[in-house]
Amino acid sequence: MDIKQKLKQVIVEDLNFEDLTAEQIGDDEVLFGEGLGLDSLDAVELVVVVKRHFGVEIKDMTEGREAFASISSLAKFIEERMGR
């Protein structure tokens, strides 16, 4: 499973979106605010999810803000740091 697909799956499962499937999340859909509707608590949860499932830490808030824009940007962020 590629990173984007796994990200969508863990967002649905770990953030408890009971009425949403991974397939319904677009690669470039905005994650926070008007898009998927994630909020500040989800942001912290997402940091935990990324660390637990991909072993990648998000420590820098500026980096994190860019990474959290969409599934595509977060997947790119993870891919660049995996195995470092």
Binding site: L41, V44, E45, V47, V48, K51, R52
Partner: peptide, 10 residues
């Protein structure tokens, strides 16, 4: 399990 490094806030 995670050693306290990333507890889930929820």
């Amino acid at each position: 399990v995670d050693g306290g490094s990333c507890p889930s806030p929820t």
